[in-house]
C-alpha cells in the first residue's frame, strides 16, 4: 500500500522536474522546484512506512511503531528547503529588479551582453 503512495510521490517529482525544466518563467521554476522538494520529503517518509504504524510517541504497549529516524531527518530537510526557497526568491527578485522581466531566456541574453560589455 505504501508502495503505491511512494509511486504517486515519484510521479509528482517527475511532473515538478518537467515543469522546472520547461517553464520559461523564473517564478514558475521556483514553484516547480518547491513541488519537487516537497514530494521528495513525502517520498522519504512513505518509502519506509508500513500500514498501521503508530506515531513513535509515548511508551505504550503497542507492537508497531513507525521508524522515527526518517521523520527526524525530514524535519532537517524541510528547514533546508525553506532556506533554499528564501534565497532563490531573493536572487530572482534581484534579477527582476535589474531587468524587469521573469523570462529566463531574456535574462540569459541580457546577462551575457552585460558581461561581455564589462569585461571587454
Amino acid at each position: 500500500m505504501s508502495n503505491f503512495a511512494a509511486t504517486i510521490t515519484i510521479i509528482i517529482v517527475v511532473v515538478g522536474a518537467i515543469g522546472l525544466i520547461l517553464k520559461k518563467n523564473l517564478l514558475m521554476k521556483l514553484l516547480s522546484l518547491s513541488i519537487v522538494n516537497t514530494a521528495t520529503i513525502l517520498f522519504f517518509v512513505l518509502v519506509v512506512y508500513r500500514p498501521g504504524d503508530r506515531a513513535p510517541i509515548g511508551p505504550e504497549t503497542v507492537s508497531q511503531y513507525a521508524d522515527p529516524l526518517p521523520q527526524a531527518l525530514v524535519l532537517t530537510s524541510i528547514v533546508i528547503n525553506f532556506g533554499v526557497l528564501a534565497l532563490s526568491l531573493l536572487f530572482t527578485m534581484v534579477l527582476v529588479k535589474r531587468y524587469h522581466t521573469l523570462d529566463l531566456g531574456k535574462i540569459e541574453k541580457f546577462v551575457k551582453e552585460e558581461f561581455e560589455e564589462e569585461k571587454s
Binding site: S2, N3, V47, V48, Y49, R50, P56, I57, G58, P59, Y65, A66, D67, P68, L69, Q71, A72, L73, L75, T76
Partner: peptide
C-alpha cells in the same frame, strides 16, 4: 518490503528507555 529498519528499532528501544522523553522523534534530532 519495508519493516522497521534495524537502526530505527534501536532508536525506538533506547528512546522509550529515556524517562522524560516520550517523543522519540525529538530524541533522534
Amino acid at each position: 518490503s519495508p519493516d522497521t529498519a534495524r537502526i530505527g528499532r534501536l532508536y525506538l528501544e533506547r528512546g522509550f528507555e529515556l524517562e522524560n522523553i516520550s517523543n522519540t522523534v525529538f530524541g533522534v534530532y
